[in-house]
Simulated scan of single mutants.
Amino acid sequence: MMKKIWWNVNEKYLTYVKNEKGAQALEWVALGLVVIAIMSAIAMGVGSSDIGATIVSKLEEMIQGIGAGS
């Protein structure tokens, strides 16, 4: 009797633990937020210096190059 109850509880527990719906979407959202944070730090921190202008121009070249490759 106890063994049957244990298996039922264990089965119910595993259905919730193994459910990973939405985990990949959450990872992509977190990655996007990290990229936005880095871009914001670059734009605010070094926007007026020569290094900032170089970084911004290189990023613009990379973004424009994305569409040109196809």
Rank of each mutant, 00 (worst) to 15 (best):
L33E: 10
A43L: 12
V56K: 13
I5C: 05
G65N: 08
K3F: 03
G52V: 00
G69M: 11
N19T: 09
E27T: 12
V34Y: 04
T15G: 06
V17N: 06
E20H: 08
W28L: 14
S49Q: 04
I38F: 04
L14M: 15
A68F: 06
I36W: 01
I63S: 15
W28F: 13
S40Q: 05
V9Q: 12
G45N: 11
G22D: 02
W7C: 03
L26E: 09
I55M: 03
A25F: 10
L31V: 05
G32H: 02
N19I: 04
I51F: 15
L59D: 10
A43P: 01
N19P: 10
G52Q: 00
S57A: 13
T54H: 12
Q64D: 10
V29A: 10
K18A: 06
Y16W: 13
V9H: 09
Y16V: 14
Q24P: 01
G22F: 04
E11K: 12
A68D: 07
K58H: 09
V17C: 07
L26R: 12
T15W: 06
A41V: 01
S48W: 01
Y16R: 07
Q24G: 03
A43K: 03
S70T: 15
A25G: 14
G69P: 03
M39F: 05
G69Q: 10
G32I: 01
N8A: 09
I63L: 12
I66A: 12
L59M: 14
N10Q: 12
W28Q: 14
M39N: 06
I66P: 01
V46M: 05
S40E: 00
G47L: 00
E20K: 10
G67D: 11
K4S: 10
S70G: 11
M1R: 00
I36A: 13
G69A: 15
E60V: 15
L26F: 11
I5T: 06
S49R: 11
E60T: 12
V35R: 05
I42T: 02
L31T: 13
N10E: 08
I42W: 00
V34G: 02
I51N: 09
I55D: 00
I42Y: 00
Y13W: 04
N10H: 07
G69F: 14
S57W: 12
S40P: 01
G67R: 13
S40V: 04
G67F: 14
A25P: 03
K12G: 02
T54Q: 13
G69N: 13
E27R: 02
K18S: 07
A37P: 02
T15I: 14
V56Q: 09
A53W: 06
K4Y: 10
K18R: 11
A37F: 07
I36N: 04
K58G: 11
I5A: 06
G45F: 01
G47S: 07
M44G: 11
L31F: 09
L31I: 09
S70A: 12
A23H: 04
